[in-house]
Design a protein around this nucleic acid. Structure first.
Length: 248
DNA sequence: AGGAACCTCGAATAACAATT
DNA sequence: AATTGTTATTCGAGGTTCCT
């Protein structure tokens, strides 16, 4: 299956390299998951503190979490942390201040993890960067007659690769090496594709698998490279936004 | 309730700049 | 010169809101 163009020797060497990195990457994955769980827990603590304070001061509203509901839900479901649970802590002042202090401390402690979680959550919730889209003319908008009747759910569209994400992206991460370039970006991406040859992957997944920043710019760079690979027949497009290693 | 219009976001594409 | 990164623009599709 994974017939990425290359000499057999280079494939073997790459395979050996990737296998040697496997244990370290798995450990790194575990570490990151633990950090995310810690952040999720902290989030609950922060909310508890805010709620308690609100109860004390009868403030009109509590600012919504900066973390997107999606991300919270995700982290909650994935790690069993009730991040979305309504806070039912006693609204005692001491409790509130204690929670706040604890929160402040842990926030300082988990800055790194927070950043990671933020990167993951914020990106998923699309923390649209600078790209201001000029309200483009609606000329291109399809009339309902033209629009396809069966609207595939965007979520479904995302879940398919996302599900694959857990497996293929992990495998891809294994395949690519998460921290340093083992060859050019093109080769790394090819390795990712080869690592999940059975399942098409998204540019985002590839970027994630490579341990790259999940900023739009970074993903765009991956996408650009993927497009070049497609253009050079070293990869093929399996669908909109989906890339796959060339078969056979 | 159903449909149309609008909004938002991800993806595709192209062009250019920077780096090796 | 090839590779990689960045930016801008456009397109496609799903979600939300509004109107009848």
């Amino acid at each position: 299956m994974t017939s990425v163009t290359g000499t057999p020797g280079s494939i073997e060497a790459t395979t050996a390299l990737l296998l040697s990195e496997l244990p370290r990457l798995e450990a790194q994955q575990q570490t990151l998951e633990n950090e995310l769980a810690a952040v999720t827990e902290r989030l609950g603590s922060v909310r508890a503190a805010l709620t308690a304070l609100q109860a004390l001061s009868a403030a009109p509203h509590v600012p919504e979490p900066a973390v997107s509901p999606e991300a919270v839900a995700e982290s909650g479901t994935e790690h069993g942390a009730p991040a979305e649970e309504p806070v039912e802590q006693p609204a005692e002042e001491s409790a509130a201040t204690a929670a706040i202090e604890e929160t402040a401390e842990d926030t300082a402690d988990t800055t790194g993890a927070e950043n990671d979680a933020e990167a993951a959550a914020g990106d998923d919730a699309k923390s649209t960067p600078v790209q201001h889209k000029v309200p483009r003319a609606r000329a291109s908008r399809k009339t309902p007659a033209e629009a396809p009747k069966e609207r595939k759910r965007r979520t479904a569209k995302k879940t398919v690769p996302a599900t694959a994400d857990d497996t293929t992206a992990d495998a891809a991460a294994d395949a690519a090496g998460a921290d340093q370039p083992a060859g050019g970006l093109t080769e790394q991406i090819l390795a990712v594709l080869a690592g999940s040859a059975d399942t098409p992957v998204r540019a985002r997944d590839v970027a994630q698998a490579l341990g790259r920043d999940e900023s739009p710019g970074s993903i765009n760079a991956v996408r650009s490279t993927l497009d070049r690979l497609v253009g050079s027949s070293r990869a093929h497009r399996a669908g909109r936004g989906l890339y796959q290693a060339v078969q056979g």
